[in-house]
Amino acid sequence: MERIPKALIVLTWLTSAVFVVALYLVLFWAPQEAIMGDVQRVFYFHVAAGWVGGLAFLVTAIVGGIYLARGEQRWDRIAVASVEIGVVFTFINIVTGSIWARPIWNTWWTWDPRLVTATIMLLIYIAYIMLRQGIEDPDRRARFGAVYGIVGFISVPLTFLSIRIFRTIHPIVVGGSDPTALGAFNMTADMRVAFFFSLFTFTLIYVTLLWHRLRLQHLAEKIEERKLTALSA
């Protein structure tokens, strides 16, 4: 049995501590938004989760390219771990958005470009996981995963830019605001601190989860190897 590396234990505890601080900042420290009230606090983790989703898929596309160039399995391990985390966080992003939209837009869901592009992105990466499940040969699985990770990545910039290209009711808080958006607001300095700290926290969570997931993958492969040697002996 391999022990968990010390650095990983430290990182995990650190991430937990940072997360508690982020919770405090978001829930108590940041001022209440004047019009929307407390529900605006969803915003901090909502954007952070979306950010981690995009980041994770970007990592998948990049390591996919490296895998195709070099053919080393470890890049593929990062790609699949990253997609799994990205899917979970994109889902969190959509659910928290829904919770915010209920009081502000008066509906859980609306067919707005941002919501649609985010959902497409989620579906693409669920398809990625299904594609991998359908292939047994590990080399081919890695190659196809890399190709689909690159092809599917187009959905990520599209999602990011959708509120900046199309007419939409989704607010753009970071970088410019559109008067037609419902629920837009300008961040105060304190809000900005909470916001950037949330981004930082979620990035840290991403790194920690990725490391744990890679370790898990490594152990699973070891078990597989042992099983094969035990069976052949």
Partner: peptide
């Protein structure tokens, strides 16, 4: 262009007939 690429992946998978539309449609939506 997209369909030929994804179809040549899908046919090599175990779940191929199911897989192609699932892979293809979300990428095609734009």
């Amino acid at each position: 262009a997209v369909g030929t690429l994804l179809a040549s992946m899908a046919v090599q998978a175990r779940t191929r007939d199911m897989l192609l539309p699932i892979l293809l449609f979300p990428v095609l939506i734009p």
